[in-house]
Amino acid sequence: MTLVRFLPLAVAALCIASLGFATQSLAGEAPKYTVKDGKVDKGTYNGYRRFHGTCHACHGQDAMGSSFAPALIESLKSVDYETFVKTVMEGRQVTDATGAVKAMPAFGQDPNVTKHLDDIYRYLMARADGVLVPGRPKKIPN
């Protein structure tokens, strides 16, 4: 099981490495966000932007889902960082009981996502943990 789980991750990690960007997945540590008085760190803010540049077209504004893709503020409560990275990099297909297919594309080749994967994760976790309200967050001043 470990091996089976590890292999796709290694592929994912290689994809990232080949693009020249390291995530923290190899160290196994999930990236952390900072939210203070409703304001967020630079990374989390960037995650907000990048999420709403690509992911929101299916996963909805403020990660609250749409009529055809899940609300990540819920999903991320039970998905660990490794699974998050794997899903984004490789995509996912699910066939439901009616035979309808739900599909998420693989973003492993999309630098607009891979370069910002950790920031997107920071943003989504801040939302899933309920510490960041909907809408455009403000940055913590430098």
Binding site: R50, G53, T54, Q61, P105, N112
Partner: peptide, 23 residues
């Protein structure tokens, strides 16, 4: 809406949007 454009890179078959919006 509010509209914030930002730099994006083109990859065939991948989203090529480059802005974040709130409505």
């Amino acid at each position: 809406m509010d509209y914030e454009p930002f730099e994006v890179e083109y990859t065939a078959g991948q989203p090529y949007v480059g802005a974040t919006l709130s409505m």
